[in-house]
């Protein structure tokens, strides 16, 4: 565990000094800050637009951070041969991969924390600034609604799943292929329902069977998306949160176990 924490800290340190990660976080914060201006275009819905845009920015920029870092963590260490030095120390290969993943998760948590703080600051300012029109129209949902944290938490779990997939793919494929596959998985994971019901629009039995099969194999990432519900003040129960988080943990495990097995057996050339 000590070794895993040491590696995770190093990954976090490297990410914090990475300009690309900074840029993604700044973009998200910038979107949150600019959201009130977009809100003015939709009278009566401005706070909702701020929340929508801020959460979407968290999700998108978090995704960028996870894919950008996730596909490079193991693949880059192997390509650049920095892994040679580390694996000659008293660590096991699975500890190395787990350390890398924990570092990725910690980076994601840090990025989401910064973006969430920015979102609440903007919402707090909007609530305080009486000049914002339409505040009354969204009552009784509070402007700086704590329920938004539920959406952020599930964004974290969702992106942690995507990060595990990226890491898994990067243990045996090139960074480019891993990036394309991870993005494909992210998109397909949001359309599990559509894949299952593809027979309504496509006649080919083969295609519909394949799509249905894929929908059961791919993680159902849409289940982690409660942004619309919290923005509209609909309840997201604790039970739903726990079950969804547990399914996320299962998906993470399902991606990490093959990653560990592949990396342990692999020749690092």
């Amino acid at each position: 565990m000590r070794v895993i924490c040491t590696i995770a800290r190093q990954v976090l340190r490297g990410a914090v000094r990475n300009r690309v990660v900074y840029a993604a976080m700044l973009l998200a914060v910038g979107l949150a800050v600019a959201a009130p201006m977009a809100g003015r275009l939709t009278p009566g819905q401005d706070v909702k637009v701020v929340k929508d845009l801020s959460l979407a920015a968290c999700n998108l920029c978090g995704l960028f951070v996870v894919v950008f870092l996730g596909i490079r963590l193991v693949a880059r260490e192997v390509e650049q041969r920095t892994v040679d030095t580390l694996l000659s120390k008293p660590i096991r290969r699975y500890e190395f991969v787990l350390g890398q993943y924990c570092g990725l998760a910690a980076t994601l948590a840090l990025a989401l924390t910064v973006m969430t703080i920015a979102m609440y600051v903007v919402l707090g300012a909007a609530a305080w600034w009486r000049g914002v029109p339409g505040l009354a129209s969204v009552a009784p949902v509070p402007v700086a609604d704590p329920a938004l944290l539920k959406a952020v938490l599930l964004i974290f779990v969702q992106l942690a799943v995507v990060g595990a997939a990226a890491l898994c793919l990067s243990t045996f494929s090139s960074p480019v292929l891993a990036a394309v596959s991870t993005c494909g998985l992210y998109v397909a994971g949001h359309f599990g329902g559509e894949l299952r019901n593809l027979d309504e629009v496509v006649d080919s039995r083969f295609v519909t069977s394949l799509a249905a099969g894929l929908s059961y194999v791919l993680p159902d990432l849409a289940a982690f998306d409660v942004k619309a519900a919290v923005v509209h003040g609909q309840p997201v129960t604790a039970g739903y949160m726990v079950l969804t988080a547990a399914s996320g943990a299962a998906y993470i495990l399902a991606f990490l176990v093959p990653a560990l097995v592949i990396f342990t057996r692999r020749d690092l050339l």
Binding site: Q10, Q80, R81, T85, L86, S88
Partner: peptide
């Protein structure tokens, strides 16, 4: 290793302390 490479975002001191952490 041959043609040794390290995490280039950290300093020499930080890298050696990281290696020490692995021990």
């Amino acid at each position: 290793p041959e043609a040794v490479r390290f995490h280039d975002t950290c300093t020499a001191e930080e890298f050696l302390e990281y290696v020490g952490g692995l021990f």
